[in-house]
Design a protein around this nucleic acid. Sequence first.
DNA 1: TAGATTGTTAATCGATTAACAATC
DNA 2: TAGATTGTTAATCGATTAACAATC
Lengths: 202, 202
Amino acid sequence: MKRLTVYLTYLQELPEETVYVSATSIASALGFGEVLVRKDLAAVSAGGKPRVGYCKNRLKKDIENFLGYNRIDNAILVGAGRLGSALLGYGGFSEYGVNIVAAFDKNPELAGAAVGGKTVFGMERLPRLCRRMKIKIGIIAVTRESAQQVSNLLIENGILAIWNFAPTHLNLPDNILVHNENLAASLALLSKKLVEELKKEK
Amino acid sequence: MKRLTVYLTYLQELPEETVYVSATSIASALGFGEVLVRKDLAAVSAGGKPRVGYCKNRLKKDIENFLGYNRIDNAILVGAGRLGSALLGYGGFSEYGVNIVAAFDKNPELAGAAVGGKTVFGMERLPRLCRRMKIKIGIIAVTRESAQQVSNLLIENGILAIWNFAPTHLNLPDNILVHNENLAASLALLSKKLVEELKKEK
DNA sequence: TAGATTGTTAATCGATTAACAATC
DNA sequence: TAGATTGTTAATCGATTAACAATC
């Protein structure tokens, strides 16, 4: 699944005039196994032509459809600190079929501010907006300490999926979908891998 | 491996006075299989005592050692836009054994700025600092368009691992370690999962 | 001793790879 | 026809789970 996004980015970077791509060429460019790529593509696409490969634009559409980059899904963000603002201001989500409609922050000084065309509201506005717009996805960019409380509030107001940037374990009912994005742990993992790599070479 | 970080966060949130934890209790709190947790713990720790479980603090230390959260590894950041600044200002990396020493940006207006005690330099300062401090990890928080060029520059100056936030495929020699962090794709995936979940319930 | 827990060995499952047939 | 490519079927591999023995 994650590989599909990699294929897609690769396809997008191919010159405009490229019409056909083969699984073989994708595999060698990206360093995956040939058969692996072929299986992945077979899972999402109608199929390619022997000898020439896949029609590039057709394939792009197929992957996008499969990943749902065409329909639009709304989300709200809680916590308009540095990370929150970065997410709010990032224009790239729309390409991926997701739209952050608004942000909320408990700090009254931030209320009314706008980042990238999106407004920051006080927390008291959250319940009504969530319910009125039937928002299903909440993004948590608050401190470790407030994260649990915020997620409770989100769930009370109909949120079904949480993208959690706080480095903490959230206790949630198990019908709620969570994706924990611990950036520090992610960087630490890269560092660990590097250390192992260097050891191996010795 | 990723699960280890989850265990660790969970352990950290346990009350101070807790002395022993069992793999069983971790498993049920976090929703993993019992045996899975036991195997994971066995891989990093000296072992627990039947009947009482693992010594909490000992276990925390063992996981931290295994993940390398004790040694300190330096990194530099390129791109001091919204996301870059958020990373630069995030104090939490040190807990995970990583330290961002400085940031670089091609925009001369940003040069000299300081975020969270870290300074932003012009790109021309990058080579010397990288080499002098023997930096091995580079973080790319620039646009899609500059990402390839920046990564080339990093590699020329001794960087061995890249944490890439640009939504693009980097073409790199294969002794270089890359971790692509496409946040938009990540959110889109959550949205897709949610849609699937809702379908299933019908 | 009984019970909760650890740790190990074998079985299952899913994802990846290898080998080969089919097609333009 | 020959060759590059797709697509499929069987084999391998690794991670997870199930079953059970060991221990305090």
